[in-house]
Amino acid sequence: MELSGDRLAAQLRGEPLRPVYLIAGSETLLVLEAADAVRAAARAQGIAEREVHDMEGRDADWGALQASLHAPSLFASRRLVEIRLPTGKPGTEGAKLISGFCAQPAADVTLLVVAGEWSKAHAGKWSEAVAKAGHLVTFWPVKPHEMGSWLGQRLRSRGLKATPDAIARLAQRVEGNLLAAAQEVDKLALLLQGQDDVLDVARMDALVADSARFDVFRLMDAALNGQPAQVSRIVAGLQAEGEAIPALMGMVVKELHTVATLARARDFAAECKAQRIWESKQATYKRALSRHSPERWQRMLVEAGGVDRVAKGRARPGRESFDPWLQLERLLLAVADPGALRLLAS
């Protein structure tokens, strides 16, 4: 059965786990939350064993997964087996495996397929087989005119009430950033715990931090996610607010060092585990890694060190006159868009 995202939770509460679930979409927050809901339902129904298989590119070992699906569980009577498809495309071998499982599900396995990208072009006989044997849940990007409705539903799910004008103000402040919106709603739920007031515009203004006051975390997310226009806007906002560059550069250097390390790693998943990188952030790093070679990432890390020295007044000869804000913007534009690499030489 094909389900909308808002119906999944109710479906999980009202029935035993289906043999297979496909959670798909480019809205990372919503996909991760839906996958977490399936995992929670599995735990509630006594499934304690979980396997995770990252199936990306040439490293995807569908044969090993096939063997695992048919092997008896070692530690529990039932297990949850996850397949992660960052591109949303299992290929011929993967599509055959998933379709075969749907036709004859293993009695002790619930299969959870999480696809990081999705469109009508991704669908095929394999996803139809999932919908027939289990549930297919797709998340489409939340459009600007849908943000108010999405926020209203999110607020209600946290036990909060707000006027339409207050919801519109919150939508304006988060500026289409779904993760920022979810964080603001969770903060409101914490601040208003036990209160039954209806939030109006004035109260919303008093409680919600203006997301136009961008911080360095959002700046780095914009750069790593390949959003050059957002990078320029955030840099301008930080500069206008009088932020000091040295206070920002620690995080900039740290993030670039992380990406440079991941770029050199032979095993992405193992390196993420070693660096304790959350699953929700791994997709961002993968997108960034696809844009540059390991050598380029090392170069940009060196450039960041140069910006830091300029900002602290310790520039190398010939760079004393460089504007550190301009250099930071150029660096992060290059991170976001390979076409902007030429700016680093300017």
Rank of each mutant, 00 (worst) to 15 (best):
R287W: 00
H70A: 15
R218Y: 08
V142T: 14
S321A: 15
V310D: 00
L326D: 03
L199T: 04
V81T: 12
I245E: 06
S232F: 00
S26Y: 00
V201R: 12
E320T: 13
D215P: 05
R158N: 11
A315Q: 08
D165E: 15
L328H: 09
H53P: 01
P317F: 06
G57V: 00
A168F: 08
A9W: 02
E243L: 11
L80K: 03
P105F: 04
Q172I: 00
G91L: 14
I23E: 00
L74Q: 11
K132Y: 03
R316N: 14
K286P: 01
E93V: 12
L12M: 10
G176H: 03
R79D: 09
Q327A: 15
A24K: 02
D108K: 09
K125E: 14
A34Q: 07
L199I: 11
G5W: 05
G318P: 07
D6R: 14
G148H: 03
A265I: 03
Q298L: 14
D186M: 09
K187T: 15
A260F: 04
W126T: 06
R276L: 10
A336Y: 01
L199R: 01
E82S: 05
M1W: 06
G305Q: 02
T258S: 07
A76Y: 14
A336P: 03
A336G: 04
V259E: 01
L190Q: 13
S73D: 06
S68I: 04
Q230T: 07
D323R: 13
L343T: 09
A260R: 01
G237H: 11
I47E: 02
R233G: 10
S157M: 12
D267V: 09
L238Y: 03
G134H: 06
K120F: 00
A244I: 03
K273C: 04
I234F: 08
P144Q: 13
V335L: 06
G134P: 04
K281I: 04
S127L: 04
D308C: 11
V235R: 00
K273T: 13
F75T: 11
K286H: 11
G250N: 04
R316W: 13
V81P: 00
R342Y: 03
A212W: 11
G305L: 05
K273F: 00
R330E: 07
Y285Q: 09
R233M: 11
S232T: 09
E27G: 14
M147T: 06
V52A: 12
R319Q: 15
A244D: 12
E303G: 05
A288V: 09
I167C: 13
A181R: 01
L207K: 11
A229G: 14
A244N: 10
A283C: 09
V38Q: 05
A37Y: 02
R78F: 05
N177Y: 02
V109R: 01
G14V: 03
E15Q: 15
A34Y: 00
A10D: 14
